[in-house]
């Protein structure tokens, strides 16, 4: 039972890693706290659902969902957020703009699909035993996608010029611009990249949950924010670590206490973190950006 819970924890952590890393990259590079993030996840899941019910291979559906998340995030920034910034909206007004978008997206989905629950049709494959844990095929795929995405992101940030430019932009956009980095292009890429993770995370989430509705992604914002803050917002590696901690802790809580309290446990961890170490587990970049005033 315990080992199986660890297994669930790994799956939850994988989904959370996709979502939280995307969230933190988006926030740190673009400097916009996009509270519509969870709803873009849901929208991507609906795209995967539509393409899978249209007869496409469901795993191709996951890719379409990811691509949709990527493009949609880019367009959201290009046609909503950037115009507001150009018009001189301050940072905290921008947060209200993003929460307006969250509300609009969520309810447009509700208008289209109603309050019903949907399931992405995944053929039940054979299950795999591994170290005493049993995984279904879809769980294996989720873990594989997450690991591949994390490794890909790691190589991008460490080995490519683009990744370094992205990190520089996140740390100090003005300095990055002075160093000749074309920050606008970097920001666009950050939206595409984080949107991809957001979309993949959304599809992975609803596949794992089994069924979803228009509010599913929005509600998942709690563990996402918890994982991101736990890791120190703006730090992809921190978010990965945060995802692992939150994923494990919530599944353990589901086993020991009550599945309804998963989110509450994530929240509890967030509070403890804020009280003892508001700059996050990995603190360096955070202190430079004056996260904790």
């Amino acid at each position: 039972m315990f080992l199986q819970t660890v297994g669930f924890g790994i799956v939850t952590a994988s989904i959370l890693a996709l979502a939280a890393v995307g969230f933190t990259v988006q926030f740190s590079v673009t400097n916009i706290l996009n509270l519509a993030y969870g709803d873009v996840m849901t929208a991507s899941a609906f795209v995967a659902y539509v393409s899978a019910t249209a007869g496409l291979n469901p795993w191709i559906g996951m890719i379409t969902g990811g691509i949709f998340g990527s493009l949609f995030s880019y367009l959201l920034n290009r046609f909503v957020y950037t115009p507001f910034i150009r018009r001189g909206s301050k940072l905290f007004v921008m947060i209200i703009v993003t929460i307006s978008m969250s509300l609009i997206l969520q309810n447009v989905m509700q208008i289209i699909w109603g309050p019903n629950f949907f399931t992405v049709p995944i053929p039940a494959g054979s299950s795999v035993r591994f170290l005493g844990m049993i995984f279904t095929t879809s769980q294996i795929v989720i873990i594989a996608v997450a690991v591949a995405a994390m490794l890909g992101l790691h190589s991008l940030l460490t080995f490519t010029k683009l990744g370094k430019a992205m990190r520089a932009t996140a740390t100090d956009p003005e300095l990055a611009r002075n160093c000749g980095i074309r920050t606008k292009r970097i920001t666009d890429l950050a939206w595409l990249l984080s949107g991809l993770l957001c979309g993949l995370g959304g599809v992975a989430l609803v596949i794992d949950l089994g069924s979803f509705q228009s509010t599913t992604g929005g509600e998942f914002l709690v563990p996402i924010i918890a994982a991101a803050i736990l890791g120190g917002v703006g730090q992809p590696y921190g978010a990965m670590l945060g995802a692992l901690v939150i994923g494990m802790a919530t599944e353990m809580a589901a086993l020991v206490i009550n599945p309804e309290y998963k989110e509450v446990v994530a929240f509890g961890l967030l509070i403890v973190m804020l009280l003892i170490r508001p700059q996050g587990l990995l603190a360096e970049v955070a202190s430079q950006k004056e996260v904790a005033a």
């Binding site: 706290l33 509270l35 940072l91 905290f92 947060i95 929460i99 914002l221 709690v222 924010i225 918890a226 803050i229 917002v233 929240f267 967030l270 804020l274 508001p278 004056e290 996260v291 904790a292 005033a293």
Partner: peptide, 14 residues
């Protein structure tokens, strides 16, 4: 101790 945008996140979660 938190910056304004982090406060907003925490409030939403609350």
């Amino acid at each position: 101790r938190l910056r304004g945008d982090y406060q907003a996140m925490v409030f939403l979660v609350v």
